[in-house]
Write a protein that binds this DNA or RNA. Structure first.
Length: 272
DNA sequence: CTCCAGGCTTTAG
DNA sequence: CTAAAGCATGGA
């Protein structure tokens, strides 16, 4: 077994996993088990240190974005002169933006649309249990991400039966497209070009595309606008538009490459 | 009972 | 082009 340690000031497992950017994790002992692709890790906080234990520490060093200076990002947020953003950055300074698998980010955020986080987690859990390979880690059983090819074998009715509702058809269609062409052709794209390509998949609009871009493609300028960010926009930034595309453009312009980080601080802050 | 959730697609104007 | 209806599910 391998592992690594980071200072917990800028790596809070609870905030990082619980801020809504990822759905495959569960409480375990003093912290959490987190699952990505077919891998697992145990992450927990011990005073000033956060520990990560895994069979593949290198994978999770990248996953948890260990090489980035989050202190610098928090300071940048506080320099913007927006009280709500400063408070949000202070509250969420332990959040790290995960570098998730691109397929997983795309598929799981399709499930997230017009849905609640606990239910999103349970739907994804049932999908992986039904189709993923069984694995074990620290005596705990878990199931791997099945991959687009396996997901594409099942029709909409299969996912509806697992509680996905009308999103079942989107999962099948997008899994088929991904299994066919893969996402590698999109790896080099950023910003509007990446966003436009992602929205060509079934069930992927501007918001899901921005989540996939930020959490899967590490496009840190992406600024997903959902119902919570819309509240932030109106209540804390004095915005008046009701159009989410306009709101996303407003924040992207304002925050540039910091946008994705600030968005997570604000979402975590507003949702409580 | 209604309302809403990390919205998107389809249809109407 | 923009605006609104329709969509499954489940918890508050």
């Amino acid at each position: 077994m391998e592992g690594f340690v980071l200072k917990s000031e800028y790596f809070d497992p609870s905030a990082t996993l619980g801020c809504g950017q990822v759905f495959r994790f569960r409480p375990f002992r003093e912290g959490y088990l987190a699952f990505a692709e077919d891998k697992a890790c145990y992450v927990f906080c011990d005073g000033a240190d956060t520990h990560v234990v895994s069979e593949d520490a290198a994978y999770f060093q990248n996953y948890f974005d260990v090489s980035r200076d989050y202190g610098e990002i928090v300071r940048a947020a506080k320099r913007c002169g927006v009280p709500a953003l400063a408070a949000a950055a202070e509250k969420g300074k332990g959040i790290r933006i995960l570098r998730q698998n691109t397929e997983e980010a795309l598929l799981w955020f399709i499930v997230s649309q017009n849905n609640r986080i606990p239910r999103i987690k349970s739907i994804i859990e049932r999908i992986c249990t039904a189709l993923g390979e069984e694995r074990s880690f620290m005596g705990e059983r878990y199931f791997a991400y099945p991959g687009a090819a396996k997901l594409a074998e099942k029709g909409a009715d299969f996912y509806e039966a697992l509680g996905a509702g009308y999103r079942g058809a989107y999962i099948t269609k997008t899994a088929e497209a991904v299994a066919e062409g893969g996402l590698a052709p999109l790896y080099a794209l950023r910003g509007g070009q990446l966003r436009k390509k992602l929205t060509e998949f079934a069930g992927v609009g501007p918001k899901v595309a921005d989540c996939a871009a930020l959490f899967g493609f590490a496009d840190t300028g992406a600024f997903p606008v959902d119902t919570w960010i819309e509240k932030v926009y109106r209540e804390d930034f004095g915005g008046k538009s009701r159009n989410r595309e306009d709101i996303a453009a407003y924040f992207s312009e304002k925050f540039g490459e910091y946008g994705g980080f600030f968005q997570q601080y604000l979402f975590y802050y507003k949702r409580g």
